[in-house]
Design a protein around this nucleic acid. Sequence first.
DNA 1: CCCGAATAGTTGCAATGTCAACAAAAATCC
DNA 2: GGATTTTTGTTGACATTGCAACTATTCGGG
Lengths: 174, 174
Amino acid sequence: MERQPSETPPETPAPDAQGPVPWLTPAEQETWLGFIRGSLLVLEQLDAELQAAHGLTLEDYEILVNLSEQDEERMRMSDLARSALMSKSHLTHRFDRLVQRGFVERVKCERDLRVTYAVLTPSGLEALEVAAPDHVRSVRSHLIDRLTPEQQRHLACGFAAVVEGFDPPPCPES
Amino acid sequence: MERQPSETPPETPAPDAQGPVPWLTPAEQETWLGFIRGSLLVLEQLDAELQAAHGLTLEDYEILVNLSEQDEERMRMSDLARSALMSKSHLTHRFDRLVQRGFVERVKCERDLRVTYAVLTPSGLEALEVAAPDHVRSVRSHLIDRLTPEQQRHLACGFAAVVEGFDPPPCPES
DNA sequence: CCCGAATAGTTGCAATGTCAACAAAAATCC
DNA sequence: GGATTTTTGTTGACATTGCAACTATTCGGG
């Protein structure tokens, strides 16, 4: 029971009332509350554990994983930012810190002097491989293992539907 | 396809291999990837819209809503922090900004001079009531309306299971 | 070619968040 | 009943973020 000012519902939760805004029904509120609570709790917990055990932010991890999945362990900064859901500026800052730690480096592209490749160093790959098992364990313990296989499918399905709603905006035509 | 270094799986995804850490199966990866993507996208989008339209952070909104739901529109700072999933320190700072805007105020408790009540002002309640319809619309458009009623139930159910895993830690005994 | 528009990425700075230290009051315990 | 510990909440220093301005390079006509 939250998310709405509780007092003075503009229109009592009548499914036909569509004047201003259909207020959330109790069931919908539960979905929303669960969503916000679940998201924050899990993300914070995973981040905390990853940071405590390996000094890596979930974002750092994301950067490293993304690079590790590419051929040559490299990506253009822009693509990396998009893929890791960060602004370019944010990526620049965060990437700087990883550079200082020797986990990644920048390599200028010769074809197009505007672009910079983000490259994973051997040291960075090692850090990732060391952190990965613990991280996977965290993901299991706080998310995966709390769900039955069926719930998992349903969650994945629901998330897919939600994520879809964001695909067009990012870039109207690839 | 992400979240794991892709290269050199410690043990190929064999369900019986439990030596170091059971790697995530493709289905599990999909769940996890969907979770992280969906969470971040939705939360960021809602926050952005709320901020653009009403100059309120999702956290600000959370604070105001929590207060509006209490009798007398007041709560102890600590309880508010717990309820809104913030650290006490974080709440103090964020609350300060809301005080400056006149949306909330602090009232010392006379019984126990340590505690401070966070109180919603009429102005704050009004701000909340103005923002709520737009916010609900956002929640609908990015989350609720993208799901069938059945998916909604499933999501709520899954989240409940996930959130449960965190109930003990926060406060062993109320 | 050359000029204006678009793209890639960085930088500076103000706003924000975090963490540990702190102060004040209450509860606990000899 | 006075020292000790807990609980509340704030502070202040320091790191991180986000936004807008900026540099550099390429692209696109005409």
